[in-house]
């Protein structure tokens, strides 16, 4: 197992290095360098950047040097100083500050949706499989497909309208206007909660629909296997049998996707966040792309890739912990 871990970590390092190189290549593709874009922007606003300022920036990012020298400056700053550069569309604030401000909410949304998805999907999925082709199964399938088919943003718009029209709720945002600038107190927390359940629900709808189908299909694969019959022949009660054997086996997909939470931490639910005006990381990234804010976007891509790679490792480890077959295949070689 240790050998497996060491090997995996080694490959992760190689992967991340390749990703960082590719990322830097992509963000330096657009014509003109970072500082000339800044200058152009400043001129549009009628300001003029001083030559000293320009020279300092050029030196800081190694502009005018070769591609690899620029890459080296960029990546060493990130790795050794945690300095991701500055975002010019945000008054030259450090990219890391911008992202950190929003990670909390993104993470909360990801975890809450994931928990909600599985909490709803497990019982329904199990029921659907055990009572295959029953009216309940058909109902779950019907609503499941509707949930998958309806676009999230439309659901968001409709529900926001319903909330405003009939429940007098202020649409979108994290806080009602009266709490916007207030200090944190119980009222503000409750207000945030009353705004957050809606996006969580909306994001969970399509995820739940998919998860139900996955659980149902996985469980149907297991339900009629000989080992289930053999366990039944021992005299186990049906529900105990179901949970111990086929459900246990069909839980594997949950563990193989648990690591996807990590990238979700930083990608935020972009579309929903924009529609519902939530300050997650998603809109920040989209803005960065639209403005060609190269260090902001580069940082996002790099962090997302890193988290994806780490998340995959976590999934693999969780799966090994859960499924002895996987565990032994790792140990075997």
């Amino acid at each position: 197992m240790l050998a497996f871990l060491v090997r995996r970590l080694g490959w992760m390092a190689v992967t991340l290095w390749a990703v960082s190189l590719a990322t830097f290549f992509i963000i330096s593709l657009p014509p003109g360098d970072y500082v000339s874009t800044l200058q152009a922007n400043a001129e549009e606003r009628g300001e003029i950047m001083g030559p000293a300022e320009v020279a300092a920036l050029r030196d800081r990012y190694g502009l005018g040097q070769s591609f690899f020298a620029q890459y080296w400056k960029w990546i060493t700053n990130i790795v050794f100083h945690g300095d991701f550069g500055q975002a010019f569309a945000w008054n030259m604030r450090p990219v890391s500050d911008l992202i950190w401000d929003r990670v909390g909410l993104s993470f909360f949304l990801s975890v809450a949706t994931m928990l909600l998805i599985w909490a709803i999907a497990w019982p329904i999925g199990i029921y659907s499989a055990v009572r295959q082709y029953s009216p309940g199964d058909y109902a779950a399938t019907f609503f499941g497909f509707i949930g998958m088919a309806v676009p999230e943003f439309m659901l968001a718009l409709v529900l926001m309208w319903v909330g405003m029209r009939w429940f007098g709720q202020s649409p979108g945002g994290l806080f009602s206007p009266e709490y916007q600038d207030a200090a944190w107190n119980l009222g503000k927390v409750l207000d945030a909660a009353s705004h957050l359940w809606l996006p969580i629900l909306i994001i969970a709808v399509s995820g739940t629909a998919g998860a139900i189908r996955i659980i149902r299909a996985n469980l149907l694969d297991e339900l009629y296997k000989p080992y289930v019959v053999a366990a039944r022949a021992k005299g186990l009660p049906e529900w105990k049998l179901l949970l111990k054997y086929p459900v246990r086996t069909s839980m594997s997909p949950f563990f193989s996707t648990v690591g996807w939470l990590l990238p979700g931490l930083i990608s935020g639910e972009t579309i929903i966040s924009i529609v519902m005006n939530l300050p997650t990381t998603g809109p920040l990234m989209l803005g960065g792309v639209l403005n060609q804010d190269m260090y902001l976007v580069g940082s996002f891509i790099l962090i997302l890739s890193t988290l994806t790679v780490i998340g995959t490792l976590i999934s693999d480890l969780a799966l090994a912990w859960w499924d002895p077959r996987i565990r032994h295949s790792y140990e075997g070689g």
């Binding site: 000989p226 019959v229 053999a230």
Partner: peptide, 24 residues
């Protein structure tokens, strides 16, 4: 269930498929 496994037990055709791979 009080008969299954206690009074009448069964051995199946495919031993590998008849044991759960997830349990010792």
């Amino acid at each position: 269930r009080s008969v299954r496994g206690r009074k009448v037990a069964m051995v199946f055709q495919e031993p590998i498929a008849s044991m759960s791979p997830m349990h010792t």
